[in-house]
């Protein structure tokens, strides 16, 4: 009977968290392929082939935009059919992504307007976004008492902080492998064990 109860509660949690691996997987592919494309724009980066800058920027932009749209759709399915005290937290958390994303972009363009070189910009933006994502996943971990999000948050903060030391374009390769790899690993772990890991 106890087993039946535990299984029923795990079933409910699994059903609610079923979209989460898709969320991590989408971002994993976007970061892996997107940053590999950016790394491939310079002969100092990818030793096998070079991707024209505008094409790489287009691929990166398209992947990130698709991931944002996919996240909005997938995220809205996670807690569907539930409302109450957690709704406010969920809405604020959802809004925090575009708000923080815009703020970080404005800081970057402000730095460029004040003379930041394109090489420094290519170091600033990837790290800024990894740190932003890490901080927001920390918030998500606290909000939903989710150990998986906490692990992703710590990994992204570490990746964002370490990446500048590789210089450009090595930071893009590091971003692709470390951050993309973190998301893809999280997708596999959550797909195999879809609980909040409290």
């Amino acid at each position: 009977m106890l087993q039946l109860l535990g299984e029923q509660q795990r079933h409910v949690e699994r059903a609610q968290l079923a979209p989460v691996p898709w969320l991590y997987g989408t971002w994993g592919v976007a970061w892996l392929v997107g940053f590999l494309a950016l790394w491939s724009t310079s002969p100092a980066g990818n030793p096998w082939f070079t991707v024209p800058g505008p094409l790489a920027a287009g691929v990166f932009g398209a992947l990130i935009t698709s991931s944002v749209v996919a996240s909005a759709i997938i995220g809205s399915r996670i807690n569907r059919g539930v409302r109450g005290t957690s709704t406010f937290g969920g809405v604020v958390y959802g809004l925090s992504w575009p708000l923080c994303g815009t703020a970080f972009a404005l800081v970057g363009t402000g730095l460029i307007a004040n003379g930041m070189s394109s090489e420094l910009a290519s170091i600033y933006f990837p790290s800024a976004y990894a740190l932003m994502c890490g901080a927001l996943y920390l918030g998500g971990a606290a909000l939903w008492r989710d150990g998986g999000q906490l692990a992703v948050a710590i990994a992204l903060l570490a990746v964002g902080a370490i990446a500048p030391y590789f210089g450009a374009p090595g930071n893009n390769l590091f971003m692709a492998l470390a951050a993309g790899g973190t998301f893809l690993a999280a997708a596999v772990v959550v797909a195999k064990n879809p609980t909040r890991g409290r």
Binding site: Q8, V82, T85
Partner: peptide, 18 residues
Amino acid sequence: RLKITASLATLAAGDRIA
């Protein structure tokens, strides 16, 4: 009823399910 109660108990206090 045990399954129903166990499922409802997974909701955070103050939340409702359709």
